[in-house]
Every structure is written in C-alpha cells, then in structure tokens.
C-alpha cells in the first residue's frame, strides 16, 4: 500500500456498469427478502383465518344440532376465537409494508370482514336460543385519509377491549367492496360520517372516548362483573 496513486481523467464506464449491476442485485435481494417475510406473514394470517373459519363452521354445525344438545355446550366465548382480535392489527400493519401483494391483502381483509359478519350473526342466534347477553359494538372506519378521527377511535376501542376482554368489537372498513358488508351497512343505516359506532342497535357518529361508550353501554359493567364472578366460580 505504499505506492501513491493517480488516475488519468477518463470515464470508467465498465466500473459504472459493474456497480450498477451489483447495486441492482443488492436491491433485488433486499426486496426479495422483504417479500419473503411478508409472504410468511400473509400465510400466517391466512392460516389463522382458516382456523377461525373452521371454528365458525364447527359452531354452526353445533348450532344446528342444538335441538339434540343443551346450551351448556355453547358459551359466548366459543365463537370469536382469541386469534381474531390481533388479526385486524396485523392486517393494518401489513398495509404499511411496501412489498406486500395488495390484491392478496385486500382478499385477506374481505375474508376477515366476512368472518366477522358470520360470527356476529351466529352470536346473535346463539344469544337468542341460549338466552345469552353478549355485548358487542360494530365499528365502521375508513383508512382512505377521509377520516381523521378513525385512528383515535381505534385506540379507544383497543383500550376498551383490553379493559373488557369479553366485549366483542367488530370493525369494518366502510369502503370495502363486499356485498355482505354493504347489506350490513344498509340494515344498520350507516351513513358515511366516520368513525361510526353501532351500539345496542343505535348509531353514533364521530369520535367517542372510553367514558362516552361506557355511558351508552351500561352492560359493560355487568360484563366486567360477570367476568369477575366467572373467575371466582372457577376457583
């Protein structure tokens, strides 16, 4: 390394080209690696959704057989798998990732929404037959930049679901193009004033904080007590 060095003035086209090829290869590898991990995430979500689908199908079958079985076999918790709650967060996270296949992601979101609707309907049926009193909220949002309070409403609902683990929150992207969702919107007369909450069959528009929701949903207190008594009786 002792020798000093100097180059004549010229353009090193060969080096430009080699560097371009190597840089492109680095970029392609990084994109491939990122894509690979995102594919794995999508596969994970798909598996979870399939499991939920099986759970629902199982319960539907169980429901059909209700005549032959008692309601003891069906509890409020048997429908909505614990896995479904983090699914929304995971799907939201994937939406921020660049190399995720958008059509695949949309498909997963549609599937997720359908599962929620199915779960909701089934839960209502079970509740009627078995005299259960599930407490649930329908939440309609948009992530197309036209709903500045939707993110905050999401935070409030997440905190609420952590406070009341038995509370069921079904969240729907208002703009998702699924006929079942459109029907649900139409049945509930949901206007395009988001965020929107359907609580006890009544619509609430605009941001509602935790206290607001607790006020309009007094059953939450019962739910909390019920959860405590369940824990007590389990001892």
């Amino acid at each position: 390394m002792e020798n000093p060095i100097v180059g004549a003035r010229r353009a090193d086209w060969r080096s430009y080209a080699v560097a371009l090829v190597i840089t492109t290869a680095i970029f392609a590898t990084a994109l491939y690696a990122s894509n690979y991990f995102n594919e794995r995430r999508i596969a994970e979500i798909r598996t979870t959704q399939d499991n939920i689908s099986i759970d629902i199908l199982s319960l539907e079958t169980q429901f059909d057989l209700l005549a032959e079985h008692s309601c003891r076999d069906i509890s409020e918790n048997s429908v909505l798998s614990k896995e479904i709650r983090p699914l929304a967060e995971r799907l939201s996270y994937l939406e921020t990732q660049r190399s995720v296949d958008e059509s695949e992601l949309l498909r997963l979101k549609r599937y997720y929404s359908l599962l929620q609707i199915k779960d909701l309907l089934l839960m209502k049926k079970v509740a009627t037959k078995c005299s259960l009193k599930p407490v649930f909220i329908l939440y309609f949002y948009s992530n197309e930049g036209d709903c500045k309070d939707c993110e905050n409403q999401g935070y409030a609902l997440t905190a609420l679901s952590e406070k009341y683990p038995q509370l069921r929150i079904y969240s729907f992207d208002y703009n998702l193009d699924i006929s079942a969702l459109q029907t649900l919107l139409s049945i509930n007369d949901v206007e395009n004033k988001l965020p929107a909450l359907s609580i006890n069959d009544k619509m609430y528009y605009g941001f509602r904080n935790i206290q607001d929701i607790e006020k309009v949903l007094p059953q939450l207190a019962t739910l909390d007590k019920a959860a405590s008594s369940t824990r007590k009786s389990a001892r």
Binding site: I26, F27, T29, A30, L31, A33, S34, N35, F37, N38, R41, E44, P86, R90, Y93, Q97, R98, S99, N152, Y155, A156, T158, A159, N209, I210
Partner: peptide, 28 residues
Amino acid sequence: ILRIQITGAFPHPSLDLFYINTSALWFL
C-alpha cells in the same frame, strides 16, 4: 401522546415476532 390521552395508559410494545420490521428499506 394522543394515544395516552385517549386510553389513559402507555401502550406496551408488542413482543410478537410478526411485527419485527423486515422491510426492504431496513435491509438496505
């Protein structure tokens, strides 16, 4: 800050491996 105001609690970071950032940007 907004989230803390709304929920009244500091959000605990997720330890779920699902959320490890594997974006191409970070690799690069």
